[in-house]
């Protein structure tokens, strides 16, 4: 099976149906020791560097460029010197017909749909991930354990059947200790620090919502029409008010005490911070990360201080 590198929300339903195995390049970044040249955002620069150095066994690449990450658009064009690349553009206005045409073009790039039935399998895995997300929100599993699987909602670790099997084996063993912690939503890009959820929990914060992984798991469908219908609501690609309204509703359902807004050095999402604070009206800690690795001491101080201040309220 050929491997397709993807850079954000690329429907795994289509990738599997076209006979490819999706591999989310972002998932290699948090534990990476690569220090790329000519870097703005470490996420895109690291996978670009690894592709350029031939360190990844990929057959093709799909870059989500429109409506999400402009650094990826540039780094993707650089990487395209090494492997064939397709640029996926989500519509800003949620136009389903436009998105359907994008998905049809994506299918053609991948050689056409050969196994349409697998979309149903992917859909059922995502339904299980939605249940897992609920269990985490209920405090039955830890932030870290939940995140580890939810973040894989983008590529289902390359094998939907094996991944579904793995999901069924997740222990449901946590309880009271999580209930006594502050309930936190993680908004923005996923943290680039691989132990972020564990550290947050150690410092008294139970992360019960991860914005980007939730986008990975809530969109699905059994055919191109259904996929276009669902993915057109991908909030990261839409206008900010649309996204914030969606978040407000989701955060309300989960009885959130506070928000951690994860931003990345040289990313335009940093500019959203003030608007997000005004719109969501919730105690907010903004994290501004750069290179991957464990949570740095400076950031632990901020998380600890944030936790202390939440007890003051």
């Amino acid at each position: 099976m050929k491997t397709l590198g993807i850079t954000a929300l690329v429907p795994p339903e289509i990738v599997f149906a076209c006979g490819f195995k999706p591999f989310d390049l972002n998932n290699i970044v948090p534990t990476s020791t690569t220090r790329p040249k000519n870097k703005l955002c470490a996420w895109t620069a690291i996978w670009r560097e690894q592709i350029m150095n031939g360190e990844l066994d990929l057959d093709s690449l799909v870059v989500v460029a429109g409506g999400d990450c402009h650094n990826a658009l540039v780094d993707g064009q650089r990487a395209a010197e090494k492997i064939p690349a397709f640029y996926l553009f989500y519509p800003f206005d949620g136009n389903k017909e436009y998105l359907k045409s994008q998905f049809e073009r994506l299918s053609l790039f991948l050689g056409g749909i050969t196994d349409p039935g697998i979309m149903k399998t992917v859909k059922s895995v995502k339904e299980n991930l939605m249940k897992l997300d609920q269990l985490r929100s209920q405090g039955v599993i830890s932030s870290e354990l939940g995140f580890q699987y939810l973040i894989s909602g983008c590529d289902l670790q390359g094998d939907p059947t094996a991944f579904k099997e793995e999901l069924s084996r997740i222990p449901r063993e946590r309880g009271g200790d999580l209930a006594s912690m502050h309930r936190v939503a993680l908004i923005g890009v996923p943290p680039i620090h691989h132990d972020f959820h564990r550290e947050a929990e150690r410092l008294g914060l139970h992360i019960v919502f991860d914005e980007m992984p939730f986008e990975f798991i809530r969109h699905t469908g059994k055919n191109i029409n259904e996929l276009a219908e669902s993915y057109a609501d991908y909030t990261f690609a839409r206008d900010l008010k649309y996204r914030f309204d969606f978040l407000k509703e989701e955060l309300g359902k989960r009885r959130i005490d506070a928000i951690i807004h994860c931003t990345q050095f040289a990313c335009h999402h940093v500019l959203e911070d003030g608007m997000l604070r005004e719109h969501l009206q919730c105690p907010t800690l903004t994290v501004h990360s750069d290179l991957p690795g464990p949570v740095p001491e400076q950031l632990k101080l901020r998380i600890e201080a944030f936790s202390e201040l939440l007890w003051r309220k």
Partner: peptide
Amino acid sequence: RRNNFIVNDK
């Protein structure tokens, strides 16, 4: 007033 803080560290 808002239990809010910012730190410059870059």
